[in-house]
Design a protein around this nucleic acid. Structure first.
Lengths: 198, 198
DNA sequence: AGTGTCAATTGACACGATGTAAAGCTTGCG
DNA sequence: CGCAAGCTTTACATCGTGTCAATTGACACT
């Protein structure tokens, strides 16, 4: 019984990811998702109490599908702080395209739904923690430029990784994923990391 | 007669700016604005065809009220490219708080209203032109770091000035306006401007 | 005074999207 | 047989935007 339940649930989640991915997170209604999943609109409400809850579940679903933990493991395994920073930016640059549709829908929902607000803030906190770890590692190696505190550098690094920044650079300016990764890495290195005079 | 007309129109625009400024652009309905302005909800529609048109008019209204042109004049009067860059970031850091409420409302409207989309893109293009002018000036003085093209530097500089970045740094991270201006300036200088070995 | 005009008010309504409620259908299983 | 779970169908409540039509009140022209 719960096997069949999960079948439908998964179909709905997959349909959510697909629909939002296709449109960039905009103009997708509950009924559209249901249709894509091949179920009735009410069936969606049988599995998810609200649109926001569906979106939040979809992000978790995607994290699994995209092997978030494995990717983060690779970042953490870096030998130097500098290398870790580079890996973190590259991880993020590769990860965003996969989650963009759902993320954008959540961002839009933020303005009218407190639960969406909390959920998205939560994810952004996680992203920021990653930035903090990188900055701490830099500081431990005396590689953080002296004009920054650990806090201010973390804030600034994090802000550079925000979804709207990615959105504008890739979708509006036409940067490829490779260009995004390389150039953002460049900015972050130039901004926060001391010159290595070898 | 047109004097009285403009009275009401102005009252509505001022009410729009005030209401959105107070809430940060969220949760303000047409009826709320009307009540704040002291007119009926329909009176608003007599002056502005839609919510989006009202928001767009409000940004223009604000540009005048905040002396946009005068501020830009000061930026353009800078003697060196470096100084112009600094002035541009400072101008923007001082300007955003004034327009944030209306801007945020427009950004939110973007997702469901094509006209809002176009209007906001338009403003962002203007911001980008300013970035482009700064980058060109840097290039003309051979002060642009060699790893950037004029285009990519313009894109990246512009992305750093986006409203969501300001929003997160000030409202979420608690940076003051002064800190925002100084630190963003720092990042931009480090990222794009050659060291000046004096 | 009489008439026309124009801004604004009032109240009713259409529309689109989310979310709720209730009754019925189908499949599997004791 | 009979019942229980999962899904469907249909109808409806709600909320905000935007539209419409009838009405009021002030001012201006002759």
């Amino acid at each position: 019984m719960s096997r069949e339940t999960n079948e439908t649930r998964k179909k709905i989640l997959q349909a959510t990811v697909d629909s939002l991915g296709k449109t960039g997170g905009e103009g997708v209604r509950m009924g559209d998702i249901a249709k894509t999943a091949g179920v009735s609109r009410q069936a969606v409400y049988l599995h998810f109490a609200s649109r926001t809850e569906l979106l939040v579940s979809a992000t978790r679903f995607l994290d699994e599908e995209l092997d978030l933990e494995e990717r983060l493991g690779f970042v953490r395994a870096a030998e130097s702080a500098r290398e870790r920073l580079i890996r973190y930016v590259h991880f993020w640059g590769d990860y965003i395209p996969g989650i963009y549709g759902v993320a954008k829908a959540l961002i839009i929902a933020q303005s009218s739904d407190e639960a969406a607000n909390v959920a998205w803030d939560d994810r952004m906190s996680a992203l920021k923690s990653g930035c903090e770890a990188v900055v701490k590692a830099l500081a431990a190696e005396q590689a953080l430029k002296p004009e920054w505190t650990k806090e201010s550098a973390t804030d600034a690094f994090w802000a550079m990784l925000l979804v709207p920044v990615w959105e504008n650079l890739t979708l509006k300016c036409g940067w490829t994923t490779e260009q995004y990764k390389d150039r953002v890495t460049l900015m972050v290195l130039n901004s926060f990391v001391k010159e290595t005079p070898p």
